[in-house]
Design a protein around this nucleic acid. Structure first.
Ligand SMILES: [Mn+2]
Ligand SMILES: [Mn+2]
Ligand SMILES: [Zn+2]
Ligand SMILES: [Zn+2]
Lengths: 156, 156
DNA sequence: GCCTATAATTATAATAGTTCTAAAACAGAA
DNA sequence: TTCTGTTTTAGAACTATTATAATTATAGGC
């Protein structure tokens, strides 16, 4: 389930971290809430700059460390940018991404639409691939690549 | 159409480059044939090392330059590795990739199987996404993420 | 509320991958 | 063959990320 846009108070994040065996620190709280409040999929550096602006004197190394910890404990995922840097996503469920060729930006397909596509994948073909290749498919990652034909509501 | 494993002589590559408005050089020939003969999806550095070993005294900068030229002219595609570096693929058609969680390796789903899945995507859902988001889908990029349950025939 | 063990943070250095620079070599057209 | 724009090249520069090692903070037991 997507967690973009939810309000996260300190207590909620504390117990979330606790449930994932992650120590609670001021810095991790800041990074996680900054990430979870993003509509887009920020780079480590973008998060660092955002956090530097707002307050806390958090270091870039900690942003990297925290993101790695979040990913390892299943509270975030790391996405490959088309370019040189990695992007992070506080939504850890299966969901589709859209890549706008024109800008290179990466955004989400709305939950319902994306789920509909995932639910209508031809299961028999996936099964056949698993059987023929001796491979167990854990996740089908889909990216729709193309261009906006009218102004997107929000593009990064 | 996949071009892995095809034999490529100098004349064939010459006319291929010509058709794509790419000058023919010894180095580009070497990079392109090295890439096209790979069953896996090599990094720039892997290609450089392979070429250094075999002969030609080609420079790393040229490997990068050539790969960029190939991608720009549609003779190769650049794939995002999960990690830090980019991978290249001489197959420019739509095709599915498999990522082995255990090793991080990226390999191809056989043409026929992959096409079968692409042909059986729910077109009405794709259409709905295009309509609702005002986005024109040029390509659906799919990656199957999981683990081999028996020994894969060839893994990098 | 303190103490302590352990883990996280930080500044900084190091590394890895890629791109830039500017000079020399080359391809292809005439 | 000559000419011109393109490509190649070594090396420097740059960007993203990871490692190091000293400092600081957290969580839990008292
Ligand atoms: Mn960065
Ligand atoms: Mn490299
Ligand atoms: Zn997302
Ligand atoms: Zn491929």
């Amino acid at each position: 389930m997507h967690q973009h846009h939810h309000e996260l108070d300190e207590a909620a994040v504390h117990s979330l971290f606790c449930a994932h065996s992650l120590r609670f620190t001021r810095q991790r709280f800041a990074v996680y809430t900054a990430l979870a409040s993003e509509k887009v999929h920020p780079t480590a550096d973008q998060l660092f700059k955002k956090l530097s602006r707002s307050d806390s004197g958090i270091s870039l190394a900690t942003v990297y460390n925290t993101l790695e910890a979040l990913v390892k404990s299943g509270l975030a995922q790391k996405l490959a940018d088309g370019g040189t840097s990695a992007r992070y996503d506080a939504a850890v469920d299966d969901h589709l991404h859209i890549r706008d060729c024109a800008t290179g930006s990466l955004s989400d397909v709305p939950e319902a639409l994306g789920q509909k596509l995932l639910d209508n994948l031809p299961q028999h073909v996936l099964k056949q691939i698993e059987d023929e290749l001796g491979f167990s498919i854990g996740r089908v990652q889909i990216e729709l690549i193309g261009e906006y034909t009218r102004q997107a509501v929000e593009v990064n």
